[in-house]
Amino acid sequence: MPIEPLDRDTILDLARLAGLPLDDADQAARIAAGASAAIAAVARNIRETLFDLEPGDYLAALERLAPPPTTGSVE
């Protein structure tokens, strides 16, 4: 389910509820954009799994998950 981005007014309301001195609308809009991006990034990390990778990216992801080799190089 897509996450609704935060808007400027929500940030201003939250600031008021928290008793923070924020009344600059431009600053509130910037905070809203930054917070929305952070929330989306966290949500992606939680929800995305190896299932969601394209076949071409899958083997590379497995390589990254694998522990480093403990023995010498293959001859």
Binding site: L50, F51, E54, P55, Y58, L59
Partner: peptide
């Protein structure tokens, strides 16, 4: 046959 967009079990 392409598996792009199909669920993986053992690629």
């Amino acid at each position: 046959v392409s598996r792009a967009g199909a669920m993986k079990l053992s690629p």
